[in-house]
Amino acid sequence: MQAIRTQRVADAIATRIEKLILEGALRPGEKLASERELAQRLDVSRPSLREAIDKLVDRGLLTAGRGGTSVAQFLLPIMTPLANLYRDHKNAAGDYLEFRQWVEAQAAQAAAERATEVDKAAIRACLADMRKAHKSKDSAQEAQADVNLHIRIYEASHNFIVLHVMRALSELLRDNVFFNREHLYGRAGVREKLLAQHVEIGEAVIAGDPERAEKAAATHIQFVFGTVEDIQRDDQRLECSISRVGRNDFLAER
């Protein structure tokens, strides 16, 4: 009888952790509290907790090792090979940003319709972080605040597929698979426009205005799309100019 009771407790723990992962409360890569501490917090036995964790490890939702237990990066192993195919493809950034325009517009619209007061508070805090990063003129901080705001919008859309897929794509951006976000912030005149666009998206969601939020998100991605194309063209022109300067390396001496 004890075995049956333990099994039921383990299932309940696994279901609770699984729900937190699904809803985005526990995020890929995050480390869980130690077994002892987590068992105390949940008021369960360590054997029951261990069994629950083993179930979720087997299902690919958690990873466990000497360093402890973490939420698995369960979408990255699927997306990384595709991203590697795209890495040096000339259409990678364009395809990615076109996809983003479709998703961002609908996610912002849904967020404006569905955001709870908790979601809105998180977006307000994120906007404050963006203003602070902008004031510091730290392109790395601004780029990270940019990612964080978009994730808050995905969360507020309350669409779990959008949240997990777009969060995984955001992880790929850290490796500059599609474009270098810090270079975007380093381009003259761009930082101010990006801040204004992000504020417009966030405030539209907070105000509960779906049409305004959708338009603001679409406009933002269109601007990013155009700026990335400009950066790529400038890089190509510079490369061409440099090759002309070095042309003598390939010529016979006169």
Rank of each mutant, 00 (worst) to 15 (best):
Q2N: 09
Q2S: 05
R5I: 15
R5T: 10
R8T: 07
R16M: 06
I17N: 03
I21A: 06
A25E: 12
E30K: 00
K31P: 01
L32T: 08
S34H: 10
L38A: 04
Q40W: 08
S48R: 02
E51G: 00
D54I: 01
K55R: 07
D58K: 02
L61Y: 07
G67V: 04
G68F: 12
T69H: 03
L75G: 03
L76H: 04
I78R: 12
I78S: 15
I78A: 15
M79L: 15
A92R: 07
G94W: 04
D95F: 10
E98K: 00
E98I: 01
Q101Y: 08
V103G: 06
A108I: 08
A111H: 08
E117F: 11
E117K: 12
C126R: 04
L127W: 08
K132C: 02
K135D: 12
N148L: 00
R152C: 07
N159L: 09
N159A: 11
I161M: 12
R187Y: 12
K193G: 10
L195M: 13
A196M: 04
V199I: 14
G202M: 02
P210R: 07
A213K: 13
E214R: 08
K215H: 06
F225S: 05
E239H: 08
C240T: 10
I242D: 09
V245I: 14
F250Y: 13
